[in-house]
């Protein structure tokens, strides 16, 4: 257990250092508290050419002690309206699900979490999720229905949260 904790800490510190020196477009990541390397704070910039363009959405990534064997959990602290984000902000995408067979039989095992994923790949997946929602396995039923049946209402709501995120700056 001690060796595993040390390994996870070293890995996260390395990834943090890499992101600081070679940042990736679309997001900025850092520690919430310098004394705890397992809690990250991420600011996702709304992708261009999408409904979320112009917005700034904050999220918290919580890494387990057995990282990278288990996936972290990502929760939006900013208000978010998306079919694949729960009402409390928890993100539900395939790569964040624990490895193994899907109990509901919907996802392939290859789509689920693998240890090769990094913080960068996780955040990029989330940005991709914002661009193309998946309404077949919705986490927020109301958002999914709006996105599918009443797209205009969905757009209005997204524009409202974008404007709200801008005001919080």
């Amino acid at each position: 257990m001690a060796a595993t904790t040390s390994q996870a800490s070293l890995l996260l510190q390395k990834q943090l250092r890499d992101l600081a020196k070679h940042p990736v477009d679309g997001f900025s990541a850092g520690l919430v508290d310098d004394s705890n390397v397992f809690e990250w704070q991420v600011t996702i910039i709304g992708p261009p050419d999408t409904l979320y363009d112009g917005g700034y959405f904050n999220a918290i990534m919580s890494f387990p002690e057995n990282y990278p064997n288990s996936p972290p959990s990502v929760r939006f602290t900013s208000e978010m309206w998306h079919p694949n984000v729960y009402s409390d902000g928890l993100v539900c995408i395939s790569i964040l699900h624990p490895p193994g067979e899907d109990p509901s039989g919907y996802e392939l095992a290859s789509e689920r979490w693998t240890p090769v994923h990094t913080v960068e790949s996780i955040v990029l997946s989330i940005i991709s999720m914002l661009s193309s929602p998946n309404d077949e396995s919705a986490a927020n039923i109301e958002a999914a229905k709006e996105w599918r049946d009443k797209r205009e209402d969905f757009k209005k709501r997204v524009r409202r949260i974008v404007r709200k995120s801008q005001e919080m700056l």
Partner: peptide, 9 residues
Amino acid sequence: QRLIYKGRI
């Protein structure tokens, strides 16, 4: 200007 560093504005 909006400067973002390590997930903070």
